[in-house]
Design a protein around this nucleic acid. Sequence first.
DNA 1: CCTACCGATCGGTAGG
DNA 2: CCTACCGATCGGTAGG
Lengths: 195, 195
Amino acid sequence: MITKTKVNRKQQIIEKATQLFQKQGYAATSMRDLAGYIGIEAASLYSHIKSKEEILQTICFQMANDFFQSLEKIELEKLSADEKLKKAVISHVKVLTKDSAASAVFFSEWRHLSESYLKDFLAMRNNYENKFIQILIDGHKEGIFKKMDAKFTVLALLSSINWMPSWYKPEGKLSPEEIAENVTDVFINGLKIRS
Amino acid sequence: MITKTKVNRKQQIIEKATQLFQKQGYAATSMRDLAGYIGIEAASLYSHIKSKEEILQTICFQMANDFFQSLEKIELEKLSADEKLKKAVISHVKVLTKDSAASAVFFSEWRHLSESYLKDFLAMRNNYENKFIQILIDGHKEGIFKKMDAKFTVLALLSSINWMPSWYKPEGKLSPEEIAENVTDVFINGLKIRS
DNA sequence: CCTACCGATCGGTAGG
DNA sequence: CCTACCGATCGGTAGG
């Protein structure tokens, strides 16, 4: 049996914590819970992490980074607004489904971050939403999208996608691309048969 | 000063708990927190309620009932699928915005219900979703809606609406009807200008 | 509705 | 990574 290095153990702690935070919530998950699942004493966790909140911070800011990076790549491309929106949704869904447990924690447990982290977190989220809003505004200027409340629409769009980790099963039949295809198709083209 | 009756006090406890559960989450809200905001001792809460979980049960099942009743009324009406969908969304949004704090608790904190209540809760939610799914299926049969994954679409639709309590401000400029109008318009007609 | 209190559990530290 | 332990806090009860 190969000895586990500290790095691996830390990774293991974060992964198990992610699962527990998703299932039970951050506040309802105790360090003794977590340690028990890993097979060590609660006190031993602190050889690898500084605090319970540090775990949450790691999860939240890792996800935030992933979302940001994936969107920034797309912003550089020269695309029409509807193509850009579709690509943005696809990469959003890809990040989301790559680790749906971490995504669920990211979306539901961020409020338990302490103040200064919370501030950074909310600023990043706002920034991210604004990039989507800009795509819709551009699309309207280009004559592709109808007049609408862009912020409202983006929040509705992101909400409908972000809720997914709560019911998305990786073994399900839909790939990230198919999910994004479905979502963008509904939002861009609507449900009605065109006449 | 008029003496508060027990009924009023119980109502006050539930309302304040709803606010705290929304802001901090159920698990992170202590009975001492709650009592402090009301201005009594924690032990005194138990003259009015049986347990912390009873408060959560009251909130969740009250909301579940409201949602159900509003939808059942619409099911009886003879309407085309797109009209029925719109009406269903309007009354869903109305229930949601009537008490957005209770709605937020309903959508985010139900997992802290104990097992038997959890089972009932999930059954009701499934039942509710199925009614929406049926509307979409009927709409496809009537030739109004295109072919789609009805369950997927309903979950996306409800998610985009249900996320609202986390950012909806009653003093905002949009009425429930306008919100429902925006949401259904996007879903039914899409963002693209018809050509 | 309060005082007084219960056993259980919390996140975390000291020291090895 | 463990044993031993800390002060704080938890939901809730007894008795008035």
